[in-house]
Amino acid sequence: MRNLLLSILLLTVCSVASATPNGSVAGKIQALKQQAVKLHKDLAQLEADLLYPAKTQVAIYVSKKLAKSVVLSQLELFIDDQRVASHIYSAEDNHALDLGGMQRLFLGNVRVGEHEFKVTAKGIDQTKAVITLQGNAGLYKSSEPLSINIGLSDTAGTTPPVLSVNRL
């Protein structure tokens, strides 16, 4: 039966190759795609400028700086006691964070002034124990964009992991 399908499908390839449509339309599509991508880029940037003006923009990133292995499993973000974002972490997410990637957890608007940023997270440490971490900070939002880093760190392995909330 398997040999049968081998034969069948080898012939199928030949038929497909011969019936592939001409390239002129494909060329037009490629050119159009390039234009559309550029336009989309402009629109996306414009949209971001309009939706998140510098005066009120706040972007919150998550990063890891750990000497010992901690697998992040979930994280919640509160601004002024209001839950604004949460994320469940996959193995890929953790791998990307371990390599130095920063996850943009939240992009939004807050008014100018003092705000309380609170984060709670759960993870699994290298002893396979579930750990719960908390971090918070009161930060002033000026008329400039505010970028905040939620960092999971362990001071080069010398302390237990902690969550910190800092201005970038």
Partner: peptide, 21 residues
Amino acid sequence: NSVLFHYYKQDYQAALKALSI
């Protein structure tokens, strides 16, 4: 770094999208 986050996850389309803005 947020672009790299998607790159390391091999989610290249998301990385390109993040880069484009």
